Every structure is written in C-alpha cells, then in structure tokens.
Computed example of a mutant assay.
Amino acid sequence: MIVLGSFLGKGEIIECFGGIFLDETKLAVWHVIPQYPTLWPYVNLLLDSPEFFVMFWNSCKQVFPSIFGQLLIALPAAWSFSRFEFRGKKLLFYLYIVLMIMPFQVTMVSSYLVLERLNLLDRHVAIIIPNLFATFPVFILVKFFRAIPMELIEAAQIDGASEGLIFRKIGLPNASAGIISVVTLGFIEYWNALEQPLTFLKSKSLWPLSLYLPEMSVSNLSVSFVASVIMLIPACLIFLFGQQYLEEGIVASGLKQ
C-alpha cells in the first residue's frame, strides 16, 4: 500500500484521502493500482526537499554510533557476567533486568535532568549516550557467552591464552548470532525512534528521519509515502539479513511470542 501510494499524483491523493483531511464526514478510498501513476512525489522529495536528506543523515549520525558504542560496552559487560564471579553479581544482573523491562516513559525525566545538567540536550549525543548503556543487549549476549563449553575455554587457558585472547578468539565468534541479533533489534528500534528525539532534541535541524513522517497533510501525503518507502528500505534489509540470527537470539533469551 505504501509503495503503490508513492506513485499517486496530487489529484488522485485528494480523491482517495480528501475525505479524511478535507471533509471528516467522508471515508477514504483506495485504488489497488494507481489510475494515473507518476514519479512526481519521488522528484519532489529527492530533488526539492533538502530537509529530508538532513534528517536522513541525522538518523545515521544517531543510529550507527549508538549501535557501535552499545557493542563496545555490552560485549565486555556480558562476558564479565558470564565468566567471572564477584560480589553483588546477581544483584547487579537483576538490576539490569529491571532496567530492561522499564519503558522509556519511566526513565525519561531522570534522563532529561542528567542530560540537562551535563549540558548535552539538543545535541546528537543526547540520543547516543543513553543508547550506549541499554541493558537488553547485555541480557541477550550473556546467554550466548554462557553457552560456550567450559572445556573449550579451559583448553585455551592451558595453552596459555590470556582472557582478552579468549574473549576475541572464542567468545566473539561463538556469540556472533547474538551480536547480529542485537544489532538488528537495535537498528530497528533506533531507526524508528520517536519519543527520545522529541524529548531530548529541541532544534528541528537535529531531528531524525522518523520525525519527518508524522507531519502529513493532504498536500504532501504522496511525498510522505515516498519518505516511508525510503525509510523502510534500510530497516527491511537489516531485518532480512539478520532474521535467522534474530530468531536464534530470541530462543537463547528464553523469550516467547
């Protein structure tokens, strides 16, 4: 529906959706195949809408550093939880689980106050920093690291391998499915984020692409369809690539549909 809607012209858009936007007493009409298909919405968005590309790159600046930094923190944390015994380990891990199940609305005020105190609001880092310390990746990766046979690790220790070498040569390869599932879930979540950018970013020049779409009207609805198509492409490709690993991650975490 979104793909076909991206080929609708202005006249056909008004005919199909004018009842919703212009006259609330009428219903929308949908043509399975556009009667007068046109590439005008693509030309309008890709050539005459520079703000679209600004928001697209804003999304890239916020999403990719978030995922990369998240792995830098989550991987050593998960390895420590799965490999070492230390005082307060269970309590700390339970705290991770509690933070994982808390929705953003619960921690929104505290996060806002901390970012304001650090003078980080209305910057890209206001989105990136909270994402770095997400607890769900740690929870997923702990399951994969614990599944590594201890005999394999002990054999590497007997051969003189250091903890860092074991982590790089044994831990990371055996947890590759978990890493890819974390990247897949993280990308989809951050690429479609709405509440965090609305809360932490005041300047529209810093808004990600996910905030470009809600500003719809009958005059630019076809352009919004095109923006939706373009926004869906990266998420769909990432999901299709990581689908198998995502299923393995869900099984490993013990989650059920």
Rank of each mutant, 00 (worst) to 15 (best):
residue 1 M to E: 10
residue 1 M to P: 02
residue 2 I to F: 15
residue 2 I to P: 02
residue 3 V to N: 06
residue 3 V to C: 06
residue 4 L to G: 07
residue 9 G to L: 09
residue 12 E to G: 06
residue 13 I to P: 00
residue 14 I to Q: 10
residue 15 E to F: 05
residue 17 F to H: 00
residue 17 F to E: 03
residue 24 E to M: 01
residue 24 E to P: 07
residue 26 K to A: 04
residue 28 A to N: 08
residue 30 W to G: 04
residue 30 W to Q: 11
residue 32 V to R: 15
residue 36 Y to G: 01
residue 36 Y to K: 09
residue 37 P to E: 10
residue 37 P to N: 01
residue 41 P to S: 02
residue 43 V to R: 14
residue 45 L to R: 15
residue 48 D to E: 14
residue 50 P to A: 01
residue 54 V to A: 06
residue 55 M to G: 04
residue 56 F to S: 07
residue 56 F to C: 09
residue 59 S to M: 09
residue 59 S to N: 07
residue 59 S to K: 15
residue 59 S to F: 14
residue 61 K to N: 11
residue 63 V to I: 01
residue 66 S to Q: 11
residue 66 S to V: 01
residue 68 F to W: 07
residue 71 L to N: 05
residue 75 L to F: 04
residue 76 P to G: 05
residue 77 A to S: 06
residue 80 S to H: 10
residue 80 S to D: 10
residue 81 F to C: 08
residue 81 F to I: 03
residue 83 R to S: 06
residue 86 F to M: 01
residue 87 R to K: 09
residue 89 K to E: 05
residue 90 K to W: 10
residue 91 L to G: 11
residue 93 F to I: 15
residue 94 Y to W: 07
residue 94 Y to N: 15
residue 95 L to E: 03
residue 96 Y to A: 15
residue 97 I to N: 02
residue 99 L to V: 07
residue 99 L to K: 07
residue 101 I to M: 00
residue 103 P to N: 12
residue 104 F to V: 12
residue 105 Q to V: 08
residue 106 V to I: 07
residue 110 S to R: 01
residue 112 Y to F: 03
residue 113 L to C: 01
residue 113 L to A: 00
residue 114 V to E: 02
residue 118 L to W: 11
residue 120 L to A: 02
residue 124 H to R: 15
residue 126 A to V: 03
residue 128 I to G: 08
residue 129 I to A: 08
residue 130 P to E: 09
residue 131 N to M: 07
residue 132 L to K: 07
residue 138 V to R: 01
residue 141 L to M: 12
residue 142 V to P: 05
residue 144 F to Y: 02
residue 145 F to P: 06
residue 146 R to N: 12
residue 147 A to I: 12
residue 149 P to D: 00
residue 154 E to L: 10
residue 155 A to H: 02
residue 155 A to K: 14
residue 155 A to T: 07
residue 157 Q to A: 10
residue 158 I to Y: 05
residue 160 G to E: 14
residue 162 S to H: 08
residue 165 L to W: 03
residue 170 I to E: 05
residue 170 I to A: 09
residue 170 I to Q: 02
residue 170 I to N: 08
residue 173 P to L: 09
residue 177 A to L: 05
residue 178 G to R: 11
residue 178 G to C: 04
residue 180 I to T: 03
residue 182 V to N: 15
residue 182 V to D: 13
residue 183 V to N: 02
residue 184 T to D: 08
residue 184 T to W: 12
residue 187 F to D: 12
residue 188 I to N: 14
residue 192 N to R: 13
residue 192 N to I: 12
residue 193 A to L: 10
residue 194 L to I: 14
residue 199 T to P: 13
residue 201 L to S: 09
residue 202 K to A: 15
residue 202 K to E: 07
residue 207 W to C: 08
residue 208 P to M: 01
residue 212 Y to L: 03
residue 215 E to H: 11
residue 217 S to W: 03
residue 217 S to K: 02
residue 217 S to D: 00
residue 218 V to M: 05
residue 219 S to C: 11
residue 221 L to S: 10
residue 223 V to R: 14
residue 225 F to K: 05
residue 227 A to I: 14
residue 228 S to I: 15
residue 229 V to Y: 00
residue 231 M to D: 13
residue 232 L to W: 03
residue 232 L to I: 08
residue 233 I to F: 09
residue 234 P to W: 00
residue 236 C to S: 15
residue 238 I to P: 08
residue 239 F to W: 08
residue 240 L to M: 13
residue 240 L to H: 01
residue 242 G to P: 01
residue 243 Q to M: 00
residue 243 Q to V: 09
residue 245 Y to E: 10
residue 247 E to D: 11
residue 252 A to K: 04
residue 252 A to V: 00
residue 253 S to N: 11
residue 257 Q to A: 13
